[in-house]
């Protein structure tokens, strides 16, 4: 699993907003280009980002294995044709190049995930998205982070209990219904208690925002982000 890990790399020290900007710039230009030369350039950028953030490549590829299956399957399906000559290499190659850029986008975003703690992302959201939506999005993301292990353990309990009652032999529809119903009712009970605690603690639309400040080192990073974005229009 790919998650944040504390570290000393330059990428860890960057403001999360500059890192988000680079990702957006990179994704924009990657979505705009599939020419081999452009992909070569993007590969170099990816390699630099991964090295600077010290991203473990094999573990990251494993984390994205679901996507990789589709990205590998795509070119095969594209190349296959009904009837002679059975294989259309040109179509397969086009899809292979298109798939490859998606892989690069995933790897670049892995650098962000690995180097950015959730509290910084939350601060970035609250400071970037204006007004009430920003506040709900920032606190909401913090709540998902806080409750993910709690809800995961609820789901384990539900699945163990239903398996103990010969649940594995029941139909898939019944199992989906059971997990859905029990999971939802437990989760809503928790949410109702949480909402009381939020109110008691003066949950407001205009809190003091978490600290976050651009530093000098963010300037070149933002420059790279803008440059990447501009190459999308080449």
């Amino acid at each position: 699993m790919l998650t944040y890990e504390p570290g000393e790399t330059v990428v860890h020290d960057l403001d999360p907003r500059s890192k988000l900007a680079v990702q957006i710039g990179f994704a924009a230009t990657a979505l705009a280009h599939t020419a081999p030369r452009a992909l070569l350039g993007l590969s170099v950028v990816t390699a630099v980002v991964l090295a600077l953030a010290r991203v473990p490549v094999v573990r990251t590829l494993y984390a994205y294995r679901f996507a990789l299956v589709i990205l590998a399957l795509g070119p095969l399906v594209a190349a296959a044709t009904l009837g002679p000559p059975w294989i259309d290499l040109e179509a397969g190659l086009a899809t292979a190049l298109a798939s490859y850029r998606v892989l690069l986008i995933l790897l670049v975003s892995a650098a962000y995930v690995r180097t950015t703690p959730v509290r910084e992302s939350r601060a970035a959201i609250q400071r970037t998205v204006p007004g009430k939506p920003g506040q709900l999005l920032g606190i909401g993301v913090a709540l998902v982070f806080r409750f993910l292990p709690v809800v995961q353990s609820d789901l384990r309990t539900i699945r163990d209990a239903s398996a103990a009652r010969l649940g594995t032999e029941r139909s898939a529809r019944e199992r989906a219904t059971t997990i859905g119903l029990l999971g939802l009712s437990r989760t809503f009970d928790r949410a109702d208690r949480l909402s009381l605690a939020l109110r008691a603690r003066c949950f407001s639309w205009n809190p003091t925002l978490p600290a976050l400040a651009f530093a000098r080192r963010d300037a070149p990073t933002l420059g790279v982000a803008v440059a990447l974005l501009l190459t999308a229009f080449l």
Binding site: L20, Q23, A63, F66, A67, I105, S109, Y112
Partner: peptide
């Protein structure tokens, strides 16, 4: 697959 990231 328990993945995350803007790229997804």
């Amino acid at each position: 697959g328990m993945a995350g990231g803007l790229g997804v």
